[in-house]
Amino acid sequence: MFATTDLQPLLAERGVALSREQTYRLVTGQPQRLSMVTLIALCDILECTPNDLIEPRIVEASARKASGEVIPRKSRVSARRTTINRPGHSK
């Protein structure tokens, strides 16, 4: 695949409708959010696992008190149960 426009029809076949601009940003940038459906479609298209596409990073966050004092807090990474529904497959 040489152009981001090649990815659009492959995603559409898997039930993911992204505009040309959204597809471009997905490929060239670092998306802040990525739906599970899109992630699974990308893994299917590229024949890879989520671990091949995602590199987790923990970023330090801070909270402010009413007085304006900054209190560092550790970022929390929590697990959340999810269900993956692949287009064309029934439960």
Results as ranks from 00 to 15, higher is better:
Arg57Glu: 14
Ser62His: 04
Gly29Tyr: 05
Pro72Lys: 00
Glu55Leu: 10
Ser62Arg: 01
Glu55Asn: 08
Arg20Met: 10
Leu18Lys: 13
Asp44Ala: 13
Ala17Val: 09
Glu69His: 03
Leu34Val: 06
Ala79Leu: 13
Val70Trp: 00
Val59Gln: 09
Ile84Asn: 00
Glu13Thr: 08
Thr23Ser: 15
Gln32Asp: 14
Asn51Phe: 04
Leu53Lys: 04
Met36Thr: 07
Leu42Gly: 03
Asp6Gln: 12
Ser90Thr: 12
Arg14Trp: 05
Val70Ser: 05
Thr23Glu: 12
Glu47Arg: 11
Gly88Leu: 05
Pro50Arg: 04
Pro87His: 12
Ile45Val: 07
Val16Trp: 02
Gln22Leu: 13
Thr82Trp: 05
Leu10Gln: 11
Glu13His: 07
Thr49Ile: 01
Arg64Glu: 12
Gly68His: 02
Glu13Phe: 03
Arg14Asp: 05
Val37Pro: 03
Arg14Met: 14
Leu11Trp: 03
Val16Lys: 00
Gly68Tyr: 00
Arg81Trp: 08
Cys48Val: 01
Ala41His: 02
Pro87Cys: 10
Ile40Pro: 01
Thr5His: 11
Gln22Phe: 06
Arg20Phe: 07
Ala63Gln: 14
Ile71Lys: 12
Thr4Ser: 08
Gln30Cys: 09
Leu18Phe: 10
Val37Thr: 12
Arg76Ile: 14
Ile54Val: 13
Tyr24Lys: 15
Met36Arg: 03
Met1Leu: 11
Leu42Ser: 02
Gly88Arg: 01
Thr28Glu: 14
Ala12Lys: 11
Ala63Trp: 06
Cys43Thr: 00
Ala66His: 10
Asp44Pro: 02
Gly88Ile: 04
Asn51Cys: 08
Asp52Ala: 02
Gly15Lys: 03
Gln30Leu: 09
Gly29Gln: 13
Ala79Arg: 07
Leu46His: 09
Gln22Cys: 11
Ala3Arg: 09
His89Ile: 09
Gly15Ile: 07
Ser67Trp: 00
Glu47Trp: 06
Pro56Gly: 00
Arg86Leu: 15
Glu55Tyr: 06
Val70Met: 06
Ser67Thr: 00
Ala17Asn: 12
Val77Asp: 01
Leu53Phe: 02
Leu34Phe: 01
Arg57Tyr: 02
Leu10Cys: 06
Leu53Asp: 08
Arg86Tyr: 09
Pro50Val: 10
Glu47Asn: 11
Leu34Gln: 04
Lys74Leu: 10
Lys65Leu: 13
Arg57Ser: 10
Ala63Pro: 01
Arg80Lys: 15
Arg73Glu: 09
Leu39Cys: 03
Val70Ile: 11
Ala61Pro: 01
Ala63Asp: 11
Thr23Asp: 08
Glu21Phe: 03
Glu13Arg: 13
Ser78Asn: 13
Thr82Gly: 05
His89Phe: 07
Glu55Ser: 11
Thr23Trp: 05
Glu21Arg: 13
Thr23Asn: 12
Thr5Asp: 15
Gln8Asp: 09
Glu69Cys: 04
Val59Ile: 09
Arg80Phe: 05
Ile45Asn: 01
Ser90Arg: 15
